[in-house]
Amino acid sequence: MLRYYEEQRLIVSRRSANGYRDYDESSVDRVLQIRGLLDAGLPTRIIKQILPCLDRPRAIHFPDATPEMLGTLERELSRMTDRIRCLERNRDAVAEYLEEVRRDRAPAAT
């Protein structure tokens, strides 16, 4: 996957003397960000455009933002928001279940 990310110009590596790729520490976080965006359904061509927005300090400048790209981002943002709500509901249900189980298992006070 790392080579593919390099081909797509999402990450960069240096070459060591033996020809192995060498990634700096920031690449680890960048790969996690890329994976998260891919898992959210964004294509690499759009990920490449929004990656600068994930850096600190943020550098947001999109001279080539097309209506298609904006529409895709709006749909994905909505989809992510729906997934977050679903995850929050599921998290709350699991937390309530655990709380109930722990309460039932707690030794009775004498």
Rank of each mutant, 00 (worst) to 15 (best):
F62E: 08
R9S: 15
E96G: 04
R91E: 00
R58S: 13
L10D: 01
P57S: 01
P67H: 05
Y20E: 13
E88P: 00
G36P: 07
L32F: 04
V28I: 06
R103C: 00
S13N: 06
I34R: 04
P43H: 06
Q8D: 05
L32R: 12
R75L: 13
T66V: 09
R85I: 07
S78T: 13
H61P: 03
L87W: 02
R9N: 15
D39K: 12
Y4P: 13
Y20V: 14
P57T: 04
R15T: 12
Y97N: 10
D24M: 09
I50T: 02
Y97F: 09
K48I: 12
V12E: 14
L2C: 03
V31Q: 00
M80K: 06
I60S: 06
E76H: 12
E96N: 07
P43A: 07
R56Q: 13
L70Y: 02
Y4D: 14
E7D: 15
R56F: 09
E6F: 09
P63D: 03
L38D: 07
E76I: 14
R14D: 12
C86S: 11
I60F: 05
P67K: 10
C86P: 04
L42R: 10
F62K: 12
Y5E: 08
P52W: 03
R102Y: 00
R91V: 05
P57Y: 00
R35S: 07
D92P: 03
E7M: 15
V94L: 04
H61I: 10
R105K: 11
T72N: 08
C86I: 07
T72F: 02
R79G: 10
E74Q: 13
A106V: 12
G71Q: 14
A59P: 15
I34L: 05
D29A: 04
A93N: 04
T66S: 03
L54T: 11
E96Q: 10
A59E: 13
A17C: 05
V28N: 00
